[in-house]
Design a protein around this nucleic acid. Structure first.
Length: 806
DNA sequence: AGCACGCCGACT
DNA sequence: GTCGGCGTGCTC
């Protein structure tokens, strides 16, 4: 028997299956989708079996046997194997990368070099012999790091003489957690052991006394040691004497339990909800792979529809996958799922450790859970009988992975739905233009919820023209109206959320004498001032430097900070409302694990009056006492050099506004802007999606962007400006020569931020309606890149359907 | 990618 | 003379 194996080597000529013979001992157990250890050239690597056959095209004598079978049960199903093939083709990535992205990081191979001492007696006395001592296996790294480098040459000599060997071991990154269990013997045995205990062994006597009380029971070792108050060696001694038996059993790491709180009992569905649910369950019953776009305003009860649709498929013995943008931000969401489905739910999010993720994955793989709620990668959940897939907040760009394989979870969801013959629900209050356009064309089925489920009124949205404020002489970042509204909430003990899409203190530092703006030495971008540690930071490469006292160009002392970030806003609030308690939430205050949850909990418990934050507070907040939302500068996202800028702004405004007055209290929203006439801003006032959609579609049509054209972005970067321009030009010319006349090829042009981390960046954009030669041409371009340009220090990336283009 | 093989300069 | 630099080529 011959196995086709994809090996764990990401390199151009290796990106295809290699044939191996299957040793007799493995014949009955090998299966597609299992991992194996195989010899590959002079070393051993991890591989994935993707096919089994009787004959190979390669000369049988050249074939090597599989060295070891790692999984007795396949870890990838037929479905996931064929999905990986499709994924690699669609995203133009290596097949191994497509396979590995489906598995928890813990299951990837860890290669470690180990020095094995074969003839310790032949090692000369000296520091090396002392270092080795009685050890026979030492990690190579340890040998190299010790002895001040002198061991390296010795090692080489001994290896040449065959006294030691250096081999690479392959282990999984994280192991299955094992818990040590102690099974205590029966009374009779204990009696006997008890007699043999020496009178001096007081601790052993104590332990045996404890054991008498628990004869025949199985206890966790940690618990036993704790309760009997003895040390491990004492236990060891008694085990030796036969008073107990120790075993290791597999266990799961339990992530911190989410505190369940009382939630309203599921209420009656509104008519709209009932109709939408009915259409979904019908599709499920007909096993139709229909994609639904569930368009519902904030608070219209989309989650309740998900829950009931999931219940429907669970009752039929099927499974459900629920994707949410970034789960740590929406503990309320997970709580609802746990309440409804209890232990049948696995949760996968970035807050879990590698081991915890691995455990959740195993629960799914073994069929112990039926629902998975998770971020993007949960779309690869190893279920075998998927009955429903939900993408909540469908428009979120986090569903697109930013590195290889650059897949979009929505596309994978639709692929799996076709494979499993089950429906997909894309839910959003502000659908992406692509999805809404597909729904309008009938590709997706549109389900609309126009009313809020609990009949709350929508918040009043006020647009504040900051140009007028400036004319009136108000140079602060708070308009008179917003300041007044904040003061009112402080008096009424209600909470305020302030949104500012810029972290740090000020966006740039400018010399008023010569006009110099302090730039990052590695990137083509101005540095941001962070007051907390008096540093200038680059938000692209992480460069930090102290704040200059004088202008670095002309030595003038007239340097000033311009623009406003969250840190400065925090200070201004303190000045304006000294009595207010403020919580700031941005990348800088939430870097620590769990700080997200902590800050949100503090706010929900009323420990602060104002929550000030960036992007990250736009989602998921749902606290009854928030009655005011202020957007300090709505324009920041609007002027990005990206065709989705208006869409992003509208979505953000709508989302942020939705934070106000979700419960009994009436909400009020203030959006401060310098461009109140822009449709993305003024339409956010009435929160009407349809008119926005129409205007934005007209703009997309005019400029030839999605959903009218598909786009693919090719980015080039190199340390040398001339070289990158040259390669970008070559690449673009290649595309022009090979793609059809109807396809537009824009560029090459310098990227919006033309240098990051000392690398110059160029890009080229392909726009097309129909381009049968696209995949082929891109494959060829990638081949040229990987076989020649890459060696010259060029980095090239191809992103089909990019989420942004700067 | 990683590793071996192979062919030329600076040291004991 | 050997040690070691990294160019070239292969991996079932």
């Amino acid at each position: 028997m011959i196995a086709e194996v994809i090996v764990d080597v990401s390199a151009y000529p290796i990106d295809r299956p290699f044939d191996y013979t299957v040793p007799n001992s493995m014949q009955s157990v090998v299966e597609c989708g299992s991992r194996v250890k195989v010899p590959f050239g002079p070393r051993k690597v991890l591989g994935y079996i993707t096919g089994l056959k009787d004959e190979s095209d390669i000369d049988e004598r050249k074939l090597k046997p599989i060295h070891e079978l790692i999984d007795l049960e396949p870890i990838l199903s037929e479905e996931l194997l064929s999905l990986s093939k499709w994924l690699a083709k669609e995203t133009l990535s290596y097949e191994v990368d497509a396979l590995q992205v489906m598995l928890p990081a813990a299951m990837r191979a860890k290669y470690e070099k180990i020095v094995t001492v074969i003839h310790p007696e032949r090692i000369d006395n000296g520091s090396f012999a002392t270092f080795i001592g009685s050890r026979r296996q030492i990690p190579l790294k340890q040998v190299m790091d010790s002895g001040g480098g002198a061991f390296a040459s010795l090692l080489k000599k001994y290896a040449a003489e065959g006294i030691v060997t250096v081999d690479t071991t392959i282990t999984q990154k994280t192991k299955v957690k094992k818990v040590r269990m102690i099974t205590i013997a029966e009374l009779q045995t204990l009696e006997e052991v008890s007699k043999s205990i020496h009178a001096n062994a007081k601790k052993q006597a104590e332990l045996i006394a404890y054991m008498f009380e628990h004869a025949g029971e199985s206890v966790e070792a940690a618990k036993l040691l704790n309760e009997s108050a003895v040390q491990n060696p004492v236990l060891k001694a008694l085990i030796e004497k036969g008073a107990a038996v120790e075993t290791y059993v597999e266990a799961y790491r339990e992530p911190d339990e989410i505190r369940l709180k009382d939630s309203p009992i599921p209420i009656e569905l509104t008519d709209e909800q009932a109709i939408a649910l009915r259409k979904i369950t019908d599709a499920s019953d007909e096993e139709s792979p229909e994609t639904f776009l569930l368009h519902g305003v904030t608070g219209s009860g989309k989650t309740e529809i998900y829950l009931r649709a999931i219940k429907h498929v669970l009752d039929k013995g099927k499974e459900a996958i629920v994707l949410v943008p970034e789960i740590s931000l929406t503990p309320q969401m997970t709580v609802r799922f746990k309440e409804r489905f209890g232990d049948l739910v696995a949760v996968m999010h970035s807050g879990l450790s590698a081991g915890e993720k691995y455990d959740e994955w195993r629960k799914i793989h073994r069929g112990e859970v039926k629902v998975v709620v998770g971020a993007r990668s949960a779309i690869f959940a190893p279920f075998t009988n998927v009955g429903l897939i939900v993408l909540d907040e469908e428009h979120e760009s986090t569903y697109k992975q930013e590195d290889t394989p650059r897949y979009h979870a929505r596309d994978v969801a639709i692929w799996r739905a076709h494979y499993a013959h089950c429906p997909v629900i894309l839910g959003s209050a502000t659908p992406s233009l692509e999805s809404y356009a597909r729904a309008s064309k009938g590709v997706y089925t549109l389900l609309t919820l126009t009313k809020r489920a609990k009949q709350q009124a929508m918040p009043t949205v006020n647009i504040v023209d900051m140009r007028e404020e400036l004319k009136e002489g108000n140079r602060s970042m708070f308009s008179v109206q917003l300041a007044e509204a904040i003061r009112e909430r402080l008096e009424k003990k209600e909470q305020t959320v302030l949104f500012l899409n810029k972290r740090g203190f000020s966006s740039f530092v400018l010399c008023r004498d010569c006009g110099t703006v302090v730039q990052c030495p590695n990137c083509d971008i101005s540095l941001t001032y962070h007051r907390s540690n008096e540093q200038l930071k680059c938000h692209y490469c992480g460069h930090e430097e102290p704040v200059p006292l004088t202008c670095p160009e002309c030595n003038s002392e007239h340097i000033r900070f311009f623009g406003t970030g969250t840190q400065k806003a925090e200070e201004e609030i303190a000045k304006l409302f000294p009595e207010a308690r403020v919580l700031r939430m941005d990348v800088d205050t939430t870097r620590q694990k769990g700080s997200h949850e902590r800050l949100l909990r503090q706010f929900s418990e009323g420990q602060a009056d104002i929550l000030l934050g960036t992007q990250m507070i736009a989602k998921g907040l749902d606290f009854p006492n928030i009655t005011l939302v202020g957007v300090l500068a709505a324009d920041t996202t609007l002027h990005l050099a990206d065709f989705r800028a208006a869409e992003k702004t509208f979505q953000l405004m709508t989302q942020v506004s939705g934070r106000a007055g979700r419960h009994d209290l009436l909400g009020e929203v203030f959006i401060q802007t310098y461009t109140p006439e822009h449709y993305a801003i003024y339409l956010a006032k009435t929160q009407q999606y349809e008119p926005f959609y129409q205007l934005e579609m007209a703009a997309r049509k005019q400029y030839g962007y999605p959903p009218f054209y598909y786009i693919t972005l090719i980015q080039f970067s190199h340390e040398d400006l001339l070289k990158v321009a040259d390669y970008a030009d070559k690449g673009t010319r290649f595309l022009k020569e090979n793609l059809s006349k109807e396809t537009f090829i824009i560029g090459p042009a310098a990227a919006a931020i033309s240098r990051v981390n000392n690398r110059y960046r160029y890009q080229c954009l392909i726009k097309y309606k129909k381009e049968p030669k696209l995949t082929d041409t891109l494959q060829q371009l990638i081949k040229i890149y990987r076989t020649s340009w890459m060696k010259e220090g060029l980095l090239m990336t191809v992103d089909v359907d990019p989420s942004h283009i700067f």
